Simulated scan of single mutants.
Amino acid sequence: MNDAAPDEERLLDEAIDLMISHQSDPDNAGIIDRIVAWRSMSDAHERIWNRVAKIHGASGRILSEKKRIERRDALQTSRRNFMIGAAATVGTGATAYLFGPGLLLEARADYLTGKGEFRRIELADGSVAILGPQSALAVDFGEQQRTIRLLAGMTFLWVAPLPGAPLFVMAGPLRAASSSGAFDISSDGDYVTVGVDDGRVDLSSQRRQFSDDEELRQGDWLSFDASSGAIGRGRRERDMIGSWRDNLIIAENEPVSALALRIGRWIPGRIVIADPFIGSRYVSGVFDLDRPFSALEAAVHPANAKVRRISSLLTIVSPV
């Protein structure tokens, strides 16, 4: 597995701390010197800084910044304040991430989509990814390794063959490996699903439920609920693999919490499940995302729950 993620998260934390310090005291030459020194430590430091600066709306050129005329004496900037300030500077699609998965997701992702948005991505190795709504990918390709991290949401991948270098996709606790072919993978909270349209996908995990690696062939699907350790398996027609590309979700014994999160990628604003019991119920069905609000109502109905639209930014799922 790729061990770069923990280091990247550490660098992100450091960059955010430096940005907060600079925002709190923009005239402090010592902080500016620390930022310049930190950015010069490696290409990774500079890349992370540019991501954080872009999200925050800063220019990234700290040394050339003019001194402000007045300083806010009582400014108490926290990470939350930083995120709110950042949200005001980014577009509508990205704002959802700041108030959902948060700033780290924004900074880690190479590719993002907003609510209801699809995106076709041609990768450097010749592979192609279709990124589903409100989804995020981070890509790490080298001469002899190909790794993608599905940070949130869903993607359908056509894998270009490259001898000796399978494509690895990390999603939650699972790692999927494929040398060629096509497969779908989604990550909704603690719930990960994989379905194979063509070729072969090998799944592995450090979780104890995966004592042996799983091999999936054409038509096979597997789901893993990290919160409960439950593993589901089955087969379906090829044209039903990655059916979300046709605005259709097929659920087979899935937790309501994961299903609501997935359907919510088509619904503006945030969805809140008021009662944890509702989210823990398992349901099956086919849900039409051309009418996502009705799909959400159908998904929570077996859990004796109702859906209320509080505003364009908030939908509540609560007991009947």
Rank of each mutant, 00 (worst) to 15 (best):
V272D: 04
A299Y: 03
R265V: 01
R270H: 10
S280N: 02
K306T: 07
A299N: 08
L296E: 01
A298G: 01
V283F: 00
A303D: 06
P292A: 15
A303K: 00
R308K: 15
R308N: 12
V272F: 09
S294T: 09
L261E: 10
A298Q: 14
I267W: 08
P276H: 04
L261P: 00
A298I: 00
A298R: 03
S294Y: 03
H301P: 01
H301S: 11
P276L: 07
S280A: 15
G279H: 00
P276M: 05
R291W: 09
P276N: 04
A298M: 13
A303W: 01
L261K: 04
F287L: 07
D290N: 15
D275F: 06
S284W: 15
D275I: 05
R281L: 07
I278H: 04
R309E: 13
F277A: 04
A305K: 00
G264L: 10
G285R: 13
W266C: 11
D290Q: 13
A303E: 11
R265T: 04
R309F: 09
L261R: 03
V272Y: 11
R281K: 12
E297S: 11
G285E: 14
W266N: 15
I278W: 01
R308H: 14
R270C: 05
V286H: 05
R265M: 08
P292V: 12
D290W: 08
R291M: 13
Y282C: 02
S280R: 06
Y282W: 07
S311G: 11
R270P: 00
F293C: 01
R309T: 06
I310Y: 10
W266E: 07
R291V: 02
G279T: 03
S311Q: 10
S284T: 14
A299W: 02
I271R: 09
H301V: 01
P268Q: 05
A295N: 06
V272P: 01
R291C: 06
N304T: 02
